[in-house]
Amino acid sequence: MSDKEISALTAMSNEERRTIRRERMQLVVRNKTFRVGCSILGFWLLLSIFGDLIAPRGASDQDFEFVSVGPSFKYWFGTDANGQDVFSRVILGTRLIVVMAFSATTLGTIVGTAIGLAAGYFKGTFDMITMRLIEAISAIPVLIIALLAIAALEGRSPTLTVIVIGFVFTPNIGRTVRAAVLGEAELEYVAAARLRTERTPHILFREILPNVLPPIIVEFTVRLGYAIFAIATLSFLGAGVEYGSPNWGSQIAEGWGNIYSNIWWPTAFPALAIASLAVSVNLISDSLLEVFEL
């Protein structure tokens, strides 16, 4: 089919065109994958806000009569080797990972977008230096650079972990934004803006940025999933968060040695929590990808 024919196919009557934006939103909202993803993510978000009210026991409450006891009426998800309630600790562990993942991704997205916009628009030396640095950072596995940075910095504070993960995410986002901007900057509406004496910040943020938002949004959701992945793994490896605070990765790290004795519940439930949170974010990014046709 010729290009013309295709454009004719996608061309629509005025009324149809008017509804296209609404339709696209509807397409997102109606998408089954999106709905499932949102429901699961919404569930975890609610738990992260109201976890304290829902959890039947405190994070450090111990019951020495019930140590490593399987799921029962009293302890739905059983208890761990310290006699702590697995169910409560899973619920209370939500907030930390959700807050950390969102902050790290937001940080990385903002910095990465700024760098990508500038590199793609100015090109030249700035772009060259940025690209070399981005390439260098991408040549270090995220987990290893995070481990190194966290080991080098004093203490295991979640704030530092957020900054480190945000930092290692900037290259990915920067690269995505740069690629999109390179294409956009060639388009004639940018020349048109220059021909009405617009200043560079206006061109970058008011003209180009709105047009590269879809890939940024998708990249944000992809990175969010990977932030959950990275934070969980770091805390599993004993880095990134304080000991003792309820968090899924540490729970698994503490409990997995016992799975060979078939004490699976202290490990399996937080593992399920990590999996479902990460998958929910992925389902959302997947459906956005489909609707934006990226």
Partner: peptide
């Protein structure tokens, strides 16, 4: 393949490892 594959990809390796050990191992 696409949705399942990417969903599997966002679950950390150590979670998969534990799931695999629990099921086909233990």
């Amino acid at each position: 393949i696409t949705v399942g594959g990417l969903s599997a990809a966002v679950i950390p390796e150590f979670v998969w490892a534990i799931v695999l050990v629990l099921t086909v191992g233990v």
